[in-house]
Amino acid sequence: MIKLLKIEYKKAVYNKTFWVLFGLYALIIAIIYWGIQSFLDDIVEDIGKNAPIPVTNIPIYEFPSIWHNLTFISGYLKLILSIIVVILISNEYSFRTVRQNIITGLSRVEFLTSKLLFIICISGIATLFIFLNGLILGFINTSDISFGIIFQKAHFLLGYFLELISFMTFAMMLTFLIRKSGLTLGILLLYYYLVEPFLNYKLPNDIGSYLPLQQIAHLIDMPSSTLTDFLKAAGMNINENIELVSVIIIIGYSVLFTYCSYLVLRKRDL
């Protein structure tokens, strides 16, 4: 395990693309986190002027709801981290180093495990980054702080961690299948933004919502606000918490994606 981590560390840490993309992720997160409150306040103020019902202010940074708010916002950025996964794995094919790794004595299972470890680590680091940002913002903006209140909704961080891992195992499977970075990214985006939303729209709601990326996207749903009250009244199903069923389904999907990756790696000539 340590051996695989060491190998993966060298492959990633000296890679410029890795740093550019991870830096971009961190930068965008920081900008959004530190800027979104004033942005939302402006909107709420604007809408509130003409609204027939009272629009309440959305306090994003207050413990404990801050964890729900931040992880929900960050959900959109998991794509950047997936690009890292796609690039690092497709590199192994274009440099033919996967072949050399196997020849040198890494088994296919070890190779796959090393990629999985990478995904888990990068998800962990991203979650930690969000946790630290949230901690600072929370302390600054919560007036009445007690220890219990800080971590009351911290399980949303674990949810985000799982969301990242599952989405990236999906990206990993696509990369093992397609092997070319450009094509893989194209298909990933196409599937994420077009194919699955379309399927979801066409299929009955109780089936469509079980599609993998739909499940992943709705693991952490929109935090409650005037808007969600409005949407709920319109008949939309919005989870206010993380549902255990979703967690189990998503873990199941991740295992499935990893197993498919293994099959592809096993059956194909390198």
């Binding site: 051996k3 060491k6 190998i7 060298k10 492959k11 000296y14 890679n15 410029k16 590199n91 440099f95 033919r96 180093t97 072949r99 050399q100 790794n101 020849i103 040198t104 004595g105 890494l106």
Partner: peptide, 27 residues
């Protein structure tokens, strides 16, 4: 110890780091 066709290494890594990865794999 084997090489097949062209030498396959990580182009962005130094010779030293490339060999370290091989050494890691071979323990």
């Amino acid at each position: 110890g084997a090489i097949l066709e062209t030498p396959n290494f990580y182009p962005y890594l130094s010779a030293q780091k490339n060999l370290e990865i091989i050494a890691d794999i071979k323990e």
